[in-house]
Simulated assay, not measured.
Amino acid sequence: MGTTNEPCIICDDIAIQRGDTTIWSHGTFTIPRGTVTAIVGTNGAGKTTLLQAELGLIPLSHGTMTVLGGAPGTTNGRIGYVPQSYTSEIDSSLTAEQSVLLGLTGTRFGFHLVSRAQRSKALEAMEFIGISDKAHLRLSELSGGLRQRVAIAQALVSDPELLMLDEPLANLDLASQRTTVHILRKLNRELGMTIQVVAHDLNMLLPILTGAVYLLDGHPHYARLNEVLDSKLLTHLYGTEVQVVTTPQGDMFVMPGLDDLDPGIRDMHDTRELARSHQHAKHTTTHHTHTQTGR
């Protein structure tokens, strides 16, 4: 892991353009190392585009960006990336171990012998993620949640300083979402890994987030999480009324506004009931937060 105090990402007036269309512009912000950052915005706002720009896959149309101290694309060997399409694009006939090894061998897989050191590294990554007992199973035999953990292990096997994940909780059941968040917390706290997560719904991620890049009105901004959890900002961001509610226990919830709903279809809960339903995150922070925003 990196030990420098240099920021992970530095953006100075960056913009992305495709054809004659500007995706977003005037992005000036810094993301510190050792943080867990969500990238949020409405569909089509350019969340994945930001990750692709950081990886050097899409050129900036304006401004400058530094990633781990270098230009985008020059430091990718120190970055782990989990695409949203991983579970559908990876060859399901591969075993979990073979899939994780791809993080070390890349396109050379199948043409070169895998060394003992590489197998040891893959096993170490799978043990950290908690799937070493699934090493021999084919991806087709694994649940969506387990395949997602294989994808994270594949990104982890090269010891990255920065881990990027595109919608890692999408299409997972509640238990798998919680397991994934637990793994990300472990990577951040035990290894000091900087993590970026593209997310549409922040619900499960809030206990581990430190900040967010939010794409608003065609411009990317970065702020600490307590600054992002603002009713007016979130209402503007999601294009629908959003309420931020704090319970007597210190739990914070971000919920869709209910003013326009028929009273007969409201699903109202006592704040104590809401707090009890979120006790799974109590051990992560003293005053933690949760959101429930419409997809």
Rank of each mutant, 00 (worst) to 15 (best):
R185D: 01
L261T: 12
G73C: 02
E141R: 04
R149G: 06
A151D: 04
A155I: 00
Q52L: 12
D201I: 08
H287M: 08
D13Q: 15
T285M: 10
M1P: 04
Q148E: 07
T105H: 15
E227P: 00
Y86M: 01
F109D: 12
G77E: 12
E124W: 05
L216N: 14
N171T: 07
E161S: 06
A122D: 05
R185H: 03
H269A: 14
P32H: 05
M193V: 06
A125Q: 01
L146F: 09
I265S: 14
T293G: 01
N188A: 00
T74W: 04
L233T: 01
D259I: 15
T293D: 01
S140R: 09
R147D: 03
Q154K: 11
L102Q: 11
T284N: 06
D159H: 10
H200W: 07
L229Q: 05
A122S: 07
S143T: 01
T289I: 04
Q98T: 04
P160W: 04
G77I: 09
A53Y: 13
G34D: 02
T284I: 14
V181C: 01
G70P: 03
Q243D: 14
S158G: 12
S143M: 02
V198N: 13
D91I: 01
T4K: 03
V213D: 11
A117W: 08
C8A: 13
H236S: 12
K47P: 09
G56N: 12
E54F: 15
L102R: 12
V254K: 00
H287R: 11
A170L: 09
A170M: 07
T246S: 11
Q84L: 00
H288S: 04
G73K: 07
M65N: 11
A275N: 04
K134W: 08
C11G: 11
A155G: 00
S93M: 13
I131H: 06
H221Y: 15
R295P: 13
T271A: 12
L274M: 13
D217N: 15
G294L: 13
G218V: 14
H26Y: 14
L187E: 03
P207N: 00
K47D: 10
T64H: 09
Q118P: 06
I58A: 03
